[in-house]
Design a protein around this nucleic acid. Sequence first.
DNA 1: TTTTATTGATTGACCATTCAATAAAAAACG
DNA 2: CGTTTTTTATTGAATGGTCAATCAATAAAA
Lengths: 198, 198
Amino acid sequence: MPKLGMEPIRRQQLIQATMTAIDEVGLADTTVAVIARKAGVSTGIISHYFGGKDGLLEATMRRILGDLGESVRQRQAILEQDTARGHLRAIVEGNFDRSQVSQSVMKTWLAFWATSMHKPSLQRLQHVNDRRLHSNICYQFRRHLDHEQARSAASGLAALIDGLWLRGALAPEGINITRAVTLGHEYVEEQLANTTAP
Amino acid sequence: MPKLGMEPIRRQQLIQATMTAIDEVGLADTTVAVIARKAGVSTGIISHYFGGKDGLLEATMRRILGDLGESVRQRQAILEQDTARGHLRAIVEGNFDRSQVSQSVMKTWLAFWATSMHKPSLQRLQHVNDRRLHSNICYQFRRHLDHEQARSAASGLAALIDGLWLRGALAPEGINITRAVTLGHEYVEEQLANTTAP
DNA sequence: TTTTATTGATTGACCATTCAATAAAAAACG
DNA sequence: CGTTTTTTATTGAATGGTCAATCAATAAAA
């Protein structure tokens, strides 16, 4: 079946298969054999396109973080007015877009978060992403709060978002997106209400 | 060296060694050989006292969740007055208790959280613990808020606490306990301020 | 005919568990 | 109190199993 230009197709297939596998059996039991079977290809293909299992895992994490950032950016881009409230609401909503994408993305994200503590390459990805989100939030809060308040509010909002997601990933009943978004919005409102001077 | 009554000593040693190992090399690379070496015993001892590696991991998670609950309970027990605010502050502070915030405990907790998604025995532990904390928080908020408000506030506070932990576990600079506790307290105050009727 | 894509059996490394052997304390005994 | 027996604790080499990576062979397009 060798047609030309299979690389992007195979890469996409394998990344998708990796997420599905992690969702179904967990990262610990996700072997190259499982991924390959799920993608309908042989094990050798993984080393061929990603250099090895680690390369595939890193590419998968990159994809997830990339999609997440994209979903926030899209919502920020279509804002009618450039208000702090609007941007912060976009960040909250964009971050819970993930769950629309599915359970498999949530579980994969959490699995990577846990393992990134001991894998430098994943840790760097994670850290860069975190700082970008934090900066983004902090910058918007700065429009209404002083430096220290803004930093605190940003830490709080980032933690609330991750916490809601974390609990949603594990809860047997799944995540309640509506409630999560509402809690995020409420937190934004309460922080913005702490304005020092009008 | 066989003295009598080694069991509790060995169990403690091995649980501690497990946490240290997970902190240092990650759960994925934590083999029985690594744990045994770290505890200064042979690999056979693990199967002897815990039935196998899984038994040891479950016991370790039990210990962490138990310690966490204990630290909250202690702070609630020494409250002078039985106020919702006091209990909620105790919950926040207990969750950021020094013993809970050591790097090894944080990393171990997060590693277990991620893997519990696919291990029924760990999942049950995790879920029981979560529900207890949620009930505890919800009950206190109910003293000032209506049912729906209390549920939301409880979800938010639980998520905020877990999120702060999660980010603290991963951040290269570690967790800022003072800030975390302050953010928790502030969230409690803001929720209590939403009282419907005096 | 050449190039590109893919296969999958083989290889080498690693790991949890087992269990026969060992050693030290405790108990029993004279 | 000294010696033997029993009990308890521990060891670590051997076992069977799993896994990622490799690469020579294969097959379809160009």
